[in-house]
């Protein structure tokens, strides 16, 4: 067990704690906090993968902005009902777990098992720096970038319309 492996295991345990918390905590605020933990540790996992910029963007956009928005909405709606706790005996809970289990085992067996040994790919590790990503984003991916900016604009207009209109 090397230092890297220990670091990865600790991070992934935290991330999984967050993921479990999102699904099984009974108040929305706690779920949101669990999701923040998940997103934050996921950002650190991205660092381990060498994607510095994506990792910090993950923390800034997801953990910093999107989740604050979620918390804001939860509080403004005062949707703090505790009745939403998933019932273990419920039919859909059992069937969703069954289905998820089947898909999980199949993907694990046929996709992930073969990659368990895959390590040691040597190539330049500067691919995650802002310089590299910026260069590619504004040359090769300029069109998708523009389209996404249009999409964000549409999103802004749409959310303002939704918020303004009185039903």
């Amino acid at each position: 067990m090397t230092l890297n492996q220990i670091a990865f295991i600790v991070l992934s345990c935290l991330a999984l704690f967050g993921a479990v918390g999102v699904v099984f905590f009974n108040t929305p605020v706690r779920s949101a906090m669990a999701l923040v933990v998940n997103f934050f540790t996921l950002g650190l996992v991205y660092f381990m993968l060498g994607s510095e910029l994506i990792g910090i963007t993950q923390i800034m956009v997801y953990a910093g902005a999107i989740m604050v928005l979620f918390l804001f909405v939860i509080m403004i709606l005062k949707s703090t009902n505790d009745t939403d706790k998933p019932q273990l005996g419920e039919r859909r809970f059992i069937f969703s777990l069954l289905g998820a289990g089947v898909v999980f085992t199949m993907i694990y067996r046929y996709v992930i098992m073969p990659t368990m040994e895959r390590t040691n790919v040597q190539f330049t590790r500067t691919y995650g720096t802002p310089q590299e990503i910026g260069k590619t984003l504004f040359t090769q991916y300029a069109w998708p970038f523009e389209i996404v900016s249009m999409l964000l604009l549409v999103g802004i207009v749409g959310s303002i319309m939704l918020a303004k209109r009185r039903f």
Partner: peptide, 24 residues
């Protein structure tokens, strides 16, 4: 030395578990 010590499968497993939990 992450890429020498941690196999690809570990990351994929983490992601798969997260995806399954989200779907549930």
């Amino acid at each position: 030395a992450v890429f020498d010590e941690i196999p690809l499968g570990w990351f994929l497993t983490l992601s798969l578990v997260m995806f399954t939990l989200g779907a549930v």
